[in-house]
Design a protein around this nucleic acid. Structure first.
Length: 497
RNA sequence: GGCGGCAUAGCCAAGCGGUAAGGCAGAGGACUGCAAAUCCUCCAUCCCCCAGUUCAAAUCUGGGUGCCGCCUCCA
């Protein structure tokens, strides 16, 4: 089986073949650290984290780099508003980023370059662009000469002429730098220092980098001249990624990235969620409202990564319930393994799922093969989830039979291997459950004996048709987190919730 | 104005020419004193509309309609 990915650059599906066999370099455009992350960020980083996990599972040696933009007007504005410094603001939201992502079970990147730590690389790049006539200095600023790069527009599929007319129905914003630019399309590589703002020395005077140049510099520093996958939100296609290409490729003469991948937006009631529209929900707000992190992760993965994902109360509630189903399957082994006679060795062996090409010799596809087939098709996570649900529902059913009937006819060995596959595949998607959740909560100090005694009382009451007393005892136990199951034959089973 | 994307049940969503996956919600049945839980079963004659190609189309072509995004900071 081969992995095919949608390449924005080619506007089509391509077979994935890394530049160097067995190794994959991924650069993912990170956040500008001036506020808490919202659901749009959550989607983006969940998607790319899952892409990364899948590639790792497939045996690739993956190097994943994601930047922090920590010098920017928005950060400066924020600092000014609250009377602190750019560093302080950036540090705070960088930390909050790490906290939020950890909640969502997103793996740490191999490197987290920051703009302010990449000044040398940035200056070197600008210098080279200037040497090659792709850049020019103007009153302390340095601009990229867009018309010097004939391929400009190849990523976003637009032509300069088409953009010229532009802005119908949109307010023509006065560009304060237009006087310095030789052409309206030129963009800033370096900005002259303004009073009171952080600035670095450079051949063009004190100043700071423009936005796009940092990524070009970081990619070169951390991953080399041509990387395998450059990822980010769809809104970055133009101008950000287009400009990165113009900068990097003008200098190196080589493709900046082999595959350009972009995730679709999160919308709210059909409208794009964004900071500028103010209709965003932060990750921490959502999670503190009681939504489980993995339910959010599942919600994201249930949508094809390139399509819009509409966030609604109903949708997140559905995902929460769906996660409960998956969780029941994932907890199966922890809850019933002992009862099924799984021995310690079986449990500790774990990880029964390797990146195999489907061990099942059957004519029908094995779950693992089916899972791979789905994801190999441009990371079709929604289809891959089908496999997980089928396994989880099956296990949940067996678990329920064990609780309600005290036994199951299924083969313990088979259940074990199903559970292993579910655990393994679920882990590939980063959907993980803590075994702690399987540890049943202590129930208000009631011992098993006390519970049995109450049940005996209730059974007597029921026999005497004293249903008032019978229901009272049931409610009392329920309040303690104990559910009664009246099975046929007058037998009452119970379990702690 | 330019460029691009999407339209499948109440909701999310797969499908890539061969007769509609999966999840959520819902319905019925079994069980029960009543519940809860559980188990079993059901749940799109049809894929925005209209033409066309084809033995065969949700899937291809043409034309509509609607929604969305990018062209300004933005995941």
């Amino acid at each position: 089986m081969t992995l095919s990915v949608y390449n924005t650059l080619k506007r089509s599906l391509e077979t994935f073949e890394p530049v160097a066999p067995g190794k994959v370099g991924i650069y993912c455009c990170g956040v500008t650290v001036y506020d808490y992350c919202h659901l749009g960020h959550a989607r983006s980083y969940i998607v790319w984290d899952t892409v990364r996990r899948y590639l790792m599972w497939q045996g690739y040696q993956v190097r994943y780099v994601q930047n922090f933009t920590d010098i920017d007007d928005k950060i400066l504005n924020r600092a000014r508003q609250e009377g602190s410094s750019m560093e302080e603001v950036a540090e705070r939201y960088t930390q909050s980023y790490f906290e939020d992502m950890a909640q969502l079970n997103i793996l740490a990147a191999d490197a987290y370059p920051r703009a302010t730590h990449t000044i040398d690389g940035i200056k070197r790049l600008i210098y080279e662009l200037e040497q090659k006539d792709y850049a020019y200095a103007a009153a302390g600023d340095v601009y990229y000469r867009v018309r010097q790069f004939p391929e400009y527009g190849k990523l976003s599929g637009r032509k300069l002429e088409d953009m010229r007319s532009g802005a119908s129905g949109r307010v023509e914003v006065e560009d304060p730098d237009s006087a310095k630019k030789q052409d309206a399309f030129d963009f800033a590589l370096w900005k002259a220092a303004k009073p009171g703002e952080p600035a670095w020395e450079s051949p063009w005077g004190m100043g700071r980098p423009g936005w796009h140049i940092e990524c070009s510099a970081m990619v070169r520093d951390c991953l080399g001249e041509t990387i395998d996958i450059h990822a980010g939100g769809a809104d970055l296609v133009f101008p950000h990624h287009e400009n990165e290409i113009a900068q990097s490729e003008a200098v190196t003469g080589k493709p900046l990235a082999k595959y350009w991948m972009h995730n679709g937006f999160v919308t709210v009631n059909g409208e794009k969620m964004s900071k500028s529209l103010g209709n965003f929900t932060t990750i921490r707000d959502l999670l503190s409202s009681g939504v489980e992190p993995m339910a959010l992760r599942l919600f994201v993965l249930q949508g094809q990564y390139r399509k819009p994902l509409d966030f609604t109360e109903e949708a997140i509630a559905g995902a929460t319930n769906a996660w409960q189903t998956l969780k029941d399957g994932l907890l199966f082994g922890y809850q019933y393994g002992q009862q099924l006679g799984w021995d310690v060795e079986m449990l500790s062996k774990g990880a029964g799922v390797q990146g195999s090409k489907g061990a099942g010799g059957d004519a029908s596809l094995s779950p693992v093969a089916k899972f791979q087939e789905a994801i190999d098709d441009d990371f079709n996570f929604p289809n891959a989830l089908v496999v997980l649900f089928e396994l989880a529902k099956d296990l949940r059913r067996e678990g329920n039979l064990l609780v309600h009937e005290g036994k199951t006819d299924a083969d313990a060995q088979v259940l074990w291997s199903q559970w292993q596959i579910l655990m393994g595949l679920s882990g590939v998607l980063g959907l993980q459950v803590s075994p702690d959740e399987a540890i049943l909560e202590e129930t208000g100090g009631l011992t098993d004996g006390e519970i049995e005694a109450l049940i005996a009382q209730r059974t007597a009451a029921r026999k005497a048709k004293d249903f008032g007393e019978s229901d009272r005892i049931r409610d009392e136990l329920k309040a303690q987190g104990i559910t009664l199951i009246d099975a046929p034959g007058g037998v009452t089973r119970w379990h702690r919730n």
